[in-house]
Design a protein around this nucleic acid. Structure first.
Lengths: 230, 230
DNA sequence: GTCTAAACTCTACACCGTAGAAGTCAAGAG
DNA sequence: CTCTTGACTTCTACGGTGTAGAGTTTAGAC
């Protein structure tokens, strides 16, 4: 048995060509404008060719999401669990910054590819080294992803940036009796720095994890992990 | 000038009828199957009638997202900022549980309706009472939403639940040398309780906020807010 | 050469959002 | 009452979509 799939017919385009082109097109035009027919046109092929490589548009997009995930380089574990969590969070944020159109696909098609296992291994390892028992580590690992992906998604969709004059006017028009805190924060919202917000947030998560580990410390030591991770 | 728009023609359906039907249909069939033509059929009207009330499908969905947000009852502020943050988070999670199909729309169309201002007022107020300076309160308020919405979205999309036999087998097939922590956590992942994870996560966020407030305390007192919120 | 099967293309269908024209009907003016 | 008006609704049509099903091409096995 050879490594090649020993194709007997002509090979105009293969899966990877299509995937790469699909990724680029999607990244460029966004979800609403992306269509199999346009993709077929850009790579000079019949639309049905694409559908015979991938079963349906849905599966194609799933593959695109996975392809994007693989394009970002995941960090390696270090001795510092806090730094490891930051590194993973930064990797996802970088992905969202680089490919804001593709990024939302990860929420629709729950990413379970190897690249994701790599990062989750780091996260789980970090949370255990922080001192959490396994039950908490598992749950908080997933919560960590919910937070990081939610943050990155909000940023990719443009929800997490300094407010402009229009939003400022809207907030100023609210009833001052009911929206006092909101209106007090308008200057801060106008000068919002996404990077600072991200750093603060990660810091909050990390110190919260440390607190929880003190509150509910793990009773059994980490088997072998210490030898591998640290 | 009267309050009514003094309509001169017959009133078959109005905006609210359409909105309500659209919300219910979307909630039932999901985004991919939802279409203006189907919606028109269910309420016995021509598709174009809908498009003349709302400018386009996009604006209709935007209105649906806003309509869903208004359907959830936001809590009132109490004396306890920790309880207030939990209450807001729970309100959004409840919305996601009740309407998992509609919920993702909030990420596409950044919700800026009044209902959202109500909750964000509570959040900002809570963070200031926690002792954060305005700059941190503004940023962490948005980060809080990113976390809560991300968590709720992940849950609505089915990413945040106990793993089944298929996922377990997949994790077991990973290389034990590289995925030690992941495989150790398989029992915990099989018994994952979403509610417990949510509570842990909120607790982590809250104690992290308290830590940050100690690290970077606000120097100026909260103007008037104390009289209103507490 | 022939044979075979994988890769690809063609045709066709049902459905979509929506522009633009035409129709319909309640309410005020005479 | 009739007539006008204009907001509301519907009709028709167009260019687009995903994809099922049948037909065509082509590279390697013999």
């Amino acid at each position: 048995m050879s490594a090649e799939p020993k194709s007997r017919a002509r090979r105009g385009v293969d899966r990877l060509d299509i995937l790469d082109a699909a990724f680029n097109l999607f990244d460029e035009v966004g979800e609403i404008s992306f269509s199999i027919r346009k993709l077929a046109a850009t790579i000079g092929v019949d639309p049905m060719t694409i559908l015979h490589h991938f079963g349906s548009k849905d599966e194609l997009l799933r593959a695109v999401a996975d392809y994007a995930l693989r394009s970002v380089e995941m960090p390696s574990a270090t001795k510092n669990w806090r730094a490891d969590l930051k590194a993973v969070a930064n990797a996802y944020r970088l992905l969202a910054h680089r490919h804001p159109r593709v990024f939302p696909l990860h929420f629709r098609y729950n990413a379970t590819g190897p690249a994701d296992h790599i990062s989750s291994e780091i996260v789980y390892c970090a949370l255990r080294r922080a001192g959490l028992p396994d039950a908490s580590a598992a749950g908080l690992g997933l919560a960590f992803y919910a937070f990081v992906l939610g943050f990155a998604l909000a940023e990719a969709e443009g929800l997490l940036k300094a407010i402009g004059p229009a939003e400022e006017a809207e907030l100023n028009n609210l009833d001052p009796k009911m929206y006092h805190a909101t209106q007090d924060l308008i200057p801060a919202l106008k000068n919002l720095d996404p990077n600072a917000v991200f750093n603060d947030s990660i810091e909050v998560f990390i110190s919260g994890v440390a607190d929880l580990a003190k509150l509910k410390p793990r009773l059994v030591p980490i088997p072998e992990c210490a030898a591998k991770c640290a």
